[in-house]
Design a binder for these strands. Structure first.
Lengths: 247, 247
DNA sequence: GCATCATGCGTACAGCGTGCGCAGCCAGGT
DNA sequence: ACCTGGCTGCGCACGCTGTACGCATGATGC
């Protein structure tokens, strides 16, 4: 009986109100969804990514996305592999450049994580186990570098994993620190200075821990972080080099 | 009119139905909440941790927890620092045992992460930046080891960070792999064998990547993972050792 | 011109974190 | 002995989440 009454926000059956897609874009596709998700994540971080929000961002309904993506977890896998695609991974050549090649790959991976700090919050769920094409490309290339360096087949895999583990560990720590920083709204130097009183207290109980705010004062924090990263990377490469010399 | 009608599950105003706490435990406290959260996380993983669920697990209402914990994020910080408390961190002694001490700490940290695989999903949000007492204790001890090894003050910090980054990167990768495995319900060997067809395909495009299922066949996967971890750890320690020799 | 199919979307459900205000208990002052 | 003020647990409510389902609409093949 009341079925034909006007319902809340019922589309008036007028020619003028015809749904008429207003997007010129070729509609929806998995690549576009992934791209939009990366854009949203870069701009507002992991907490801002919801299917509804991503929908409105693309001018569609949330549930429409599910035609091209099985669920949110799958979307995240896709998004992670997408950013792995940004890596600069030198083609392997001779047995000479392996050290520079691995170092360059490491810095490239770190750069990617710092450009997309949200990957840090997500790597723990996705891990290195999801086998996306770009991640496989990275493994392949780095394995090639290790082989070119002269490692026997079985050990090359171990060497590559060692480098990747270090780089990922260092980069995710750094990214989560930077995310925290971003949420605080302050600049990095301001932030460090605001920590001084707290660390004074902490240092009382922990005499060895150094007060970086004073120890490194005056240095550009960004450069400093890069030096810290490179120090560890070089130590691993040193370790691999001595291992090579021994055979 | 209908206001005095019996509502769903209204407490009958009878002496016998008096609320009367049935818990013998000294009620609610922050330590108990943290302990219960760790128990729940260990048993069912990160997805199972909700304030409501944790409430029912403790026999109280969800919102009661907020008297002792500011919000879920803070609870997670507390929980992470709690498990850092399990680490075995040798007291520093002389300049001889530094390598074993660092290696032991590394394996201890890895063991903790594998016992509590959910920390992997959470480290990206919390990072190393939350300054909990147990995390500070770890930094302090490991810095002590680096100083005992003979590193100058400024470099000891870099050395310690290098080791920790590697260990965390390797352990979180491993933990997220194991979580994935656990969700699949299969045993590790079954899982690896089920991957064989997929990796055959992948190997076609990536000739260098080795097929571990065949390459390491027959070995206990758990031991294998530990060897992989130790290989990288030893390479870092090698790198630090050569750095020490040079001065 | 008609049938088939892929696509977008409205509605709905169960679950989430958490702000708010009330109710009961315990300690301390009179 | 009584009152009082604060601490604690909790019911309710709000706005948000991921996503299953079924309908409508436009494109495509015969």
């Amino acid at each position: 009986m009341s079925s034909s009454e006007q319902q809340t926000s019922a589309p008036v059956p007028s020619v003028w109100a015809r749904p008429r897609r207003q997007k010129e874009q070729p509609a929806l596709s998995q690549e576009q969804i992934v791209a939009a998700a990366v854009r949203l994540l870069d701009a507002e971080g992991i907490e801002a990514l919801s299917m509804r929000r991503l929908g409105t961002e693309m001018g569609t309904a949330a549930t429409s996305l599910y035609r091209h993506v099985a669920n949110k977890d799958e979307l995240i896998e896709l998004v992670v592999d997408e950013v792995y695609g940004e890596l600069e991974l030198p083609e392997t050549t001779g047995p000479d450049g392996w050290r520079e090649a691995l170092a360059h790959s490491g810095h490239s991976l770190r750069g990617m994580v710092l450009r997309h700090p949200w990957v840090a919050s997500v790597l723990g769920q996705v891990g290195l186990a999801h086998l996306g094409p770009n991640l496989m490309r990275m493994s392949e290339r780095m394995l090639g570098m290790a082989l070119a360096a002269g490692f026997p087949k079985a050990e090359a895999d171990l060497a590559m994993k060692a480098v990747m583990s270090y780089v990922l560990g260092a980069s995710t720590s750094e990214a989560s620190y930077l995310s925290l920083l971003a949420r605080s709204g302050r600049s990095e130097t301001e932030w460090l200075e605001s920590l001084v009183p707290a660390s004074q207290q902490a240092l009382a109980d922990h005499p060895l821990t150094q007060d970086h705010a004073t120890a490194w004062q005056g240095k550009d924090p960004g450069l400093l972080r890069e030096e810290i990263f490179d120090y560890g990377l070089q130590r691993i490469l040193d370790g691999l080099a001595t291992r090579l010399d021994r055979s």
